[in-house]
Amino acid sequence: MQSNFYRSAGYATVTLGFLCLGFGLTTLLAGLDFFSVETASPAEVISFLQSNAGTLDLALMSAMVGYLLAVPMMLIITAAAFQGLTTRTLGRDVAVGLVWASLPLRPLWWAAMIVLMPTMLAVSGSSTEPATTAATVVGYQMIYTVLNTATEDIAVNILGGIWFGIVGVMMAKSAGVSRILGVMGVFIGACYVVSSAELFGLSMGTSGEIIPLLAGVLGPFWLGAAGLYAVRKIT
């Protein structure tokens, strides 16, 4: 009975996490092109927020929940990857540590965007001085950039990318489905880590858009597939 409960809870967590990540990121990337506001003019930012406020709120909230649910998903996958070992290993400790280290940073950017949106819309009224609106938008874009670095570059690309690599290598040592998922995990982890190159002043050229897109699209699907496999394996 207890095993059935944990299995059901695991499946629910993995499925909900995947759906939230899928809907939120797909809407923001493909539906709204939200990430272009980082370099948009104040008038373009205000127009974008006014036109997409409801959908944007829902997508941001969905993605934030998905990013948080990724933590238990990653812990479940880690447990399955290292299952069967009779002693603690450095790899497992590092993998678990990376997951927990990313937790405080994961919701920062999403929560800030959700909280700041009403303020941005409030200064977009016709009675607001243009200079005030422009200054508020500049402040918004600065916060956008700083917190996006903490959430995306550090928590997801660096900490998450290394985790993908460690767990992927362990899974690749097995056979069948686990090996396939492991090889894919190592590839996705490399894409995540490379996506953080610009944080260190390294130019990625034309790959600057392709590699992060690969990581952003493949990562949630891998977490969903590996999570379902892991729940079945450990329960």
Results as ranks from 00 to 15, higher is better:
F35C: 06
K233I: 00
L202G: 09
Y11C: 12
A226Y: 01
A131C: 07
Y67E: 15
V167T: 03
V169S: 09
Q83K: 12
A80K: 02
W110Y: 11
S8R: 15
F23I: 11
A131F: 09
Y144S: 04
A155D: 15
T151Q: 14
G205K: 08
A63G: 02
F48L: 06
T89V: 08
I180H: 03
V146C: 11
V96L: 12
G139D: 02
L29H: 10
F23P: 05
V183L: 06
E38C: 06
G22K: 07
G201F: 11
M142F: 09
V177H: 00
V96P: 03
G91K: 09
S196L: 09
F200C: 10
S36C: 02
G17P: 07
F164R: 07
R88Q: 11
S47V: 04
G219L: 06
D153R: 15
V14W: 07
L213T: 14
S126F: 13
G208N: 07
R7Q: 12
I76D: 00
M171V: 00
G160K: 09
A197I: 09
A150F: 15
L105D: 15
W110K: 00
F18N: 02
D153M: 15
G91I: 05
G97K: 03
G219Y: 08
G10S: 09
A112D: 13
L103K: 15
G219K: 06
S41L: 14
V186R: 02
L75P: 01
G66T: 07
S195T: 11
M204V: 08
C191E: 04
G10V: 11
A43R: 14
A53N: 10
I234T: 00
A30C: 08
L28P: 03
S196F: 08
F5N: 11
S195H: 09
V194W: 14
M120D: 06
S51V: 03
V194N: 05
Q2I: 13
W222E: 06
N157Q: 15
L199H: 10
S207P: 03
I211Y: 04
K233F: 00
